[in-house]
């Protein structure tokens, strides 16, 4: 991919079209190898109580000089709690980025649009660079951008479901109406889902379980890297229109 095809998020410039989560790996070593193989430059993390008995820690295995750390507010079910976690994440001293998640339901992990909008309003005022997780509803996506989200991140499918992009039409509408970068966040099951999202014109894809849950996470990370390159290149190249009838590839005349 050409080096000037970059994604800017606030002050940050990314070349890779993948943002990769750090959850659910069997070991930290496996995570390190998968992250490296994916070519990602930005990784998500969660904030939780310190386990005083733990012998090893995530941050022993992630070099903040190598990866931009994107703290999330996963597990928060209202705006107030998400704002609290975002503020605590900022205290870690890695910047003003936050992946804002305000969840609405524990079974689907679908976002609460009202809580997401409320939290975005507050956090934007406090100087956060808000990357707002949302459903694939184009109106909510638009509202989040209006409230000052730097990036809007619609889910392709429910978190960890591996169902791919369930409603490509909604993602297309969100992309056509976008005033911010759009990152498809959640739902990726395999490499073609990443390609698909980027072929539609998404600026990047955020995934975790698709890599961490694969039988061979390192190999899947490599597949995702190639899928991201393929999808982005295909988008920039401009695909041919879909047609109902055939068009011959070889000349038909002059036998």
């Amino acid at each position: 991919m050409s080096n000037n095809d970059v994604l800017k998020i606030g002050e940050i410039t990314l070349h890779s079209k993948l943002i990769v989560g750090t959850g659910k790996y069997e070991t930290f070593e496996l995570m390190e190898r998968a992250l490296a193989e994916s070519g990602t430059e930005m990784v998500t993390v969660a904030l939780r109580r310190v386990d005083f008995d733990a012998k090893d820690h995530l941050m022993n295995h992630i070099d903040p000089k190598k990866y931009i750390i994107l703290p999330n507010t996963a597990g928060c079910y209202n705006a107030e709690e998400a704002i609290r976690v975002a503020r605590l994440g900022r205290e870690m001293g890695i910047g003003d980025l936050v992946k804002l998640e305000v969840l609405g339901d524990p079974d689907t992990l679908l976002p609460d649009p009202v809580g997401s909008l409320q939290a975005t309003q507050v956090l934007v005022k406090e100087g956060f660079t808000v990357m707002a997780y949302t459903s694939d509803d184009p109106v909510v996506a638009k509202r989040l951008a209006q409230e000052g989200a730097t990036v809007v991140m619609p889910a392709g499918a429910p978190i960890g479901s591996g169902q791919g992009i369930l409603n490509p039409n909604n993602i297309r509408i969100i992309l056509e109406q976008a005033t911010t970068p759009i990152i498809v966040d959640a739902g990726v099951g395999t490499a073609s889902d990443v390609s698909r999202a980027l072929e539609l014109g998404a600026d990047a894809v955020l995934l975790n379980t698709g890599i961490a849950g694969a039988k061979d996470p390192v190999r899947m990370a490599r597949a995702m890297k190639h899928a991201a390159i393929a999808g982005r290149e295909a988008y920039l190249a401009g695909r041919i229109p879909r047609k109902l009838y055939a068009t011959a590839s070889s000349p038909l005349l002059d036998f």
């Binding site: 989560g21 750090t22 959850g23 659910k24 790996y25 995570m31 998500t44 993390v45 969660a46 904030l47 939780r48 109580r49 310190v50 820690h57 995530l58 941050m59 750390i69 703290p71 999330n72 996963a74 503020r87 605590l88 205290e91 870690m92 001293g93 978190i159 960890g160 959640a186 955020l206 995934l207 975790n208 379980t209």
Partner: peptide, 27 residues
């Protein structure tokens, strides 16, 4: 929140509810 630059001068009081948080793996 106790700001990092106040760690050295902020005293813990009896009965305080203290939360100490860190980054863990997440998506």
């Amino acid at each position: 929140i106790v700001k990092r630059d106040r760690f050295a001068e902020t005293y813990v009081q009896p009965g305080d509810t203290i939360e100490i948080l860190q980054f863990v793996g997440g998506g």
